[in-house]
Design a protein around this nucleic acid. Structure first.
Length: 289
DNA sequence: ATCCGGTTCC
DNA sequence: GGAACGGGAT
């Protein structure tokens, strides 16, 4: 089983994707930005936005100096715009409380807005080369298959221990972690794994004949027709206007269900993504800053 | 346990 | 049409 390390490292050396945030000379802050954008979002959609973003706002203080509205516009249709707001807040905290330097220890990283278990470990590992386990959805699936012989596994803290047990006791640990993610992203995929391309000589899932997932019961999260789609439509209107828009203009973005539209707008106000002016019009939060 | 975007691919 | 995508906050 210890052969996993050289097999995976050799494979990664030749098969890794050339992703811009993996190149040298990318700062910890820029890596942090990539991790925010990559939360629940495919690489292909993040890449162009990340490139433009770090050129425009290369540091935490530069990001903090921008208005929340401009940050939301630059985020565009990447999705989950609360991430953009948290990234802006995160930049402010780092600029004002950490001397414009991204913290390197997990405990401090976890105190930052929008930084959870995965992102804190990813920054410590990929930006600061620390030997800490990093578990995302890809790693969880790879470990479930290779180590436990199951098609997938529910999120659990045990995954961290599983990965910690696999990590090489050397400077290669961060590379091993990114290689594990890469394998899950490109070979050991969720729907149609390409096991013929797998570099690992031993896999418990393969040994057991690729058993199906036990109980898929997981509730499907749809999108069409949900409040999330309505929020997206409303934000899209505000992103396209530099000055506040009247309520009637927002109303046109969703005519099917007025109650749902009101609920969506209210939730955007609660989330601090949208603000109402004194005269009753609406704008992206921080439009005037 | 649910909510939170938007797109692509099977 | 559904599932998947380098999660986080409540």
């Amino acid at each position: 089983m210890t052969d996993i390390v050289p097999q995976l490292l050799d494979w990664y050396r030749t098969e890794q994707r050339d992703l811009p945030w993996r190149r040298t000379a990318v700062s910890p802050w820029q890596i942090l930005v990539s991790e925010f954008m990559l939360q629940q979002t495919p690489v292909a959609r993040v890449e162009p936005i990340w490139l433009a973003w770090i050129e425009r706002w290369p540091t935490p203080s530069a990001t903090a100096a921008a208005s929340a509205a401009d940050v939301l516009r630059a985020w565009g249709k990447l999705g989950y715009p609360r991430r953009a707001k948290r990234l802006h807040e995160c930049a402010t905290v780092i600029a004002t409380e950490h001397d414009d330097v991204v913290p390197s220890d997990i405990e401090t990283l976890l105190t930052l807005p929008g930084v959870g278990t995965y992102t804190a470990r990813a920054v410590a590992c990929f930006a600061y080369r620390k030997r800490v386990p990093v578990v995302d959805t890809n790693v969880r699936r790879v470990v479930a298959r290779v180590v436990h012989g199951r098609a997938d596994s529910p999120s659990s803290v045990r995954d961290l221990d599983d990965v910690a047990a696999l990590l090489p006791d050397s400077a290669d640990a961060p590379t091993f972690s990114v290689a594990l993610m890469e394998l899950g992203a490109t070979v050991c995929t969720a729907r149609t794994p390409r096991c013929g391309l797998c570099p690992l000589s031993v896999c418990a899932w393969r040994s057991r004949g690729y058993p199906e997932a036990a109980a898929p019961v997981r509730r499907v999260q749809r999108y069409a027709g949900t409040d999330r789609q309505v929020r997206g439509r409303l934000l899209d209107v505000l992103r396209g206007n530099d000055s506040p828009v009247p309520r009637a203009q927002l109303d046109m973005a969703w005519l099917n269900d007025t109650a749902q539209r009101d609920r969506a707008l209210d939730s955007l106000l609660v989330d601090g993504l949208v603000e109402q002016t004194a005269d009753g019009r609406f704008a992206l939060a921080g439009e005037g800053d």
